[in-house]
């Protein structure tokens, strides 16, 4: 018999593990991935594979040669970053831009803070925003939607619904005139709107969201507070002046709203810990997103909103403590 071991209680551990959580997130992203393959064909596969492979490589490289820490490249977090980065770029992006995106996401977004668990910002978003600012043309030339059943995706590019609306409103058109040019709400919900890989179908993203909620990987606070805030905040303006402000449903279903609310803002590392903090965090993201979309220079504000709220997460953790037992 070997020596008895001694340790303090508890002597059992639950079946939670970092790997399980990370791969759980990856599984939840599968529906959205399938939809994007359906619409963008092999290009979607190409972009995703390059992004994931590059993320894993950089994770391995930085851990081994710079941080000199444990092997974390297969814990699933780099895969998530890769897939999320792919979800946030157009399907016709050249491979080298994707690799640069992964380098920035992993290298600057994550490893410069010390690796998993220490990053302040969501790494995939850091990569995405870097690309958006550095390669604005490539990052905003989305290929026209063309389901795989119609043959190979063509090379024609077109703007996203958000882009159309932004340009239209800036040009002085009314909402009704602009809305005539974009797909219907039903189409936006099920899929088939132009945009980045992960943005095409709100339905598929919601499906993934339910999967995450069921497996208790995320809590309902963040996604729900973001979506509700967006609806209420944009709804107020829409009710006041429907000719100049778009329908809240449009905000909800287009662009990176669902992707951001379900997969990006809920990133454990960069979101607050307590439920109250998460609510405030979600409200903040909702307000900022609508603000940037409506009055900002960019048609889409989700990434910026999340990154901005990421930066106040430590403060939210300080300010919003959980309900203590036996204390007022």
């Amino acid at each position: 018999m070997s020596l008895l071991s001694i340790s303090a209680s508890p002597h059992v551990h639950g079946d939670n593990s970092v790997k399980k959580i990370m791969w759980g997130v990856v599984i939840a992203m599968v529906p959205a991935m399938l939809v994007s393959i359906y619409y963008f064909g092999l290009d979607a596969v190409r972009v995703t594979l390059i992004a994931v492979a590059a993320s894993i490589f950089f994770e391995w490289f930085f851990q081994k040669y710079l941080i000199k820490g444990a092997d974390t490249y297969m814990d699933g977090s780099a895969v998530i970053t890769g897939v999320l980065l792919a979800f946030n770029v157009p399907s016709n992006l050249p491979w080298w831009i994707i690799v640069i995106g992964a380098l920035v996401a992993i290298g600057i977004g994550k490893m410069s803070f010390g690796g998993l668990g220490k990053n302040v910002f969501n790494p995939a978003l850091v990569g995405r925003v870097f690309l958006l600012i550095s390669f604005p043309v490539q990052m905003t030339s989305w290929p026209k939607i063309s389901p795989i059943t119609n043959g190979i995706a063509d090379a024609i590019t077109g703007p996203t619904p958000l882009g159309i609306v932004k340009e239209g409103l800036d040009a002085g058109l009314t909402v009704d005139q602009v809305m005539a040019q974009v797909p219907s709400f039903m189409q936006q919900f099920i899929g088939g709107i132009g945009g980045s890989l992960g943005e095409v179908s709100a339905l598929a993203l919601l499906l993934g969201g339910f999967c995450l909620l069921r497996r208790k990987i995320i809590t309902w606070e963040i996604p729900l507070s973001i979506l509700l805030t967006v609806v209420i905040f944009s709804g107020i303006f829409w009710l006041i002046d429907p000719t100049h402000y778009v329908n809240p449903l449009f905000h909800l279903l287009t662009g990176g709203m669902m992707l951001g609310a379900i997969f990006m803002a809920t990133d454990m590392v960069s979101s607050p810990m307590s439920r109250n903090g998460q609510l405030v965090y979600g409200v903040g993201i909702g307000l900022l997103t609508v603000t940037i979309r409506t009055w900002g220079a960019y048609p889409e504000g989700m990434s910026f909103a999340i990154l901005l709220m990421n930066s106040v997460t430590p403060l939210l953790n300080k300010a919003f403590k959980p309900k203590r037992f036996g204390r007022k």
């Binding site: 070997s2 020596l3 008895l4 071991s5 001694i6 340790s7 303090a8």
Partner: peptide, 8 residues
């Protein structure tokens, strides 16, 4: 000599 193994 060790009689038990500490695991904390």
């Amino acid at each position: 000599p060790k009689k038990v193994e500490y695991d904390g």
